[in-house]
């Protein structure tokens, strides 16, 4: 069953006054971020979007999350068109976006507060999640007292607290160092494998995509659309060691094969993309 269906989603952005771009030789003050995005996502699957910078992956995520509306086309969530943020979705940002005036525990409670969950219940849920991420000793710490990896764990816990059907993750590990990143990938996959949450995960890292995903959707250079969907045929539950097996390398090779041409194209685009006319 498909929980999310995107049909011919297009998104244009108006540039600031005086800015122009060249699209196929035509000068315009609009930029096409998404150019006919079609994607079906199965309930409970872990889908990873990879694509060159500026290919509109995050824009698509925002549309699924109801934070942005498409110029044309539609995204269905549980058969209903998305036109506003839904209680069924959770969000994890690259920059954590924890509230600095709240403790780790209270940050996780945030989403539950507006859902009318009583205090004891909120604290119970938040403590369970903290322990799941090995952060039980840190519940009273403020974000600035936590490392980057810990902050992102808290942010993921906050998103999971409301038990979302769909979890949207926008390059959540991009700001972390390589080792912490692998550890968080392992933790995420361990925790996710115990839930039936659908995840849409945006990344630039092919290794990350292959390690996490059921399917990797490769997005084209701007305007973004799905170029190819690659099934990752690695067994679950997955452990960190799987990164060094030959099947992993084969999957990695497949994804890179689909992505390479798009990355090259995007880099060509950059040469004449941002034109500031007088």
């Amino acid at each position: 069953m498909d929980i999310i269906v995107a049909k011919d989603v297009r998104k244009k952005f108006k540039l600031k006054h005086g800015q122009q771009v060249k699209n196929n030789g035509i000068v315009s003050n609009e930029i096409d971020a998404l150019g006919g995005f079609d994607l079906n996502i199965k309930k409970g699957e872990f889908l990873v979007l990879v694509g060159p910078s500026g290919s509109g992956k995050s824009v698509f995520l925002d549309i699924v999350g109801g934070l942005s509306t498409p110029t044309s086309g539609v995204v269905y969530l549980d058969d209903k068109p998305v036109d506003a943020p839904s209680e069924k979705t959770g969000y994890v940002f690259q920059q954590y976006a924890l509230f600095p005036w709240r403790t780790a525990l209270s940050n996780i409670e945030f989403g539950l507060e507006s859902r009318g969950v009583v205090k004891e219940e909120r604290v119970k849920i938040a403590r369970e999640l903290l322990s799941l991420f090995g952060l039980s000793d840190f519940e009273d710490r403020y974000p600035y007292q936590l490392s980057g990896g810990m902050q992102q764990r808290v942010a993921i816990a906050r998103a999971l607290a409301t038990k979302p059907e769909v979890l949207l993750m926008d390059e959540p590990f991009a700001a972390l160092d390589a080792q912490t990143r692998e550890i968080l990938q392992n933790e995420l996959i361990r925790i996710w494998e115990g839930t039936d949450t659908t995840v849409i995960f945006v990344t630039h890292s092919i290794d990350e995509a292959v390690f996490l995903a059921d399917r990797v959707a490769v997005v084209t250079a701007r305007p973004g659309k799905i170029k190819e969907i690659i099934e990752i045929d690695l067994p679950r539950p997955r452990h960190g060691d799987i990164r060094s097996c030959s099947a992993f390398a084969a999957n990695r090779h497949k994804v890179w094969g689909a992505l390479k041409a798009e990355v090259n194209k995007a880099q060509q685009d950059w040469k004449h993309a941002p034109v500031n006319s007088k």
């Binding site: 109801g66 934070l67 943020p85 209680e87 959770g90 976006a97 509230f99 005036w101 507006s114 859902r115």
Partner: peptide, 28 residues
């Protein structure tokens, strides 16, 4: 940060509640 507003809208904080619980503490 714009993420605070996005989070607020995901979790249904708006109007006075948004100002009191998010905007003012963040700008404090």
């Amino acid at each position: 940060p714009k993420e605070y507003f996005e989070l607020s809208s995901v979790y249904g904080y708006k109007g006075l509640k948004l100002i009191r619980r998010i905007v003012i503490p963040a700008a404090l």
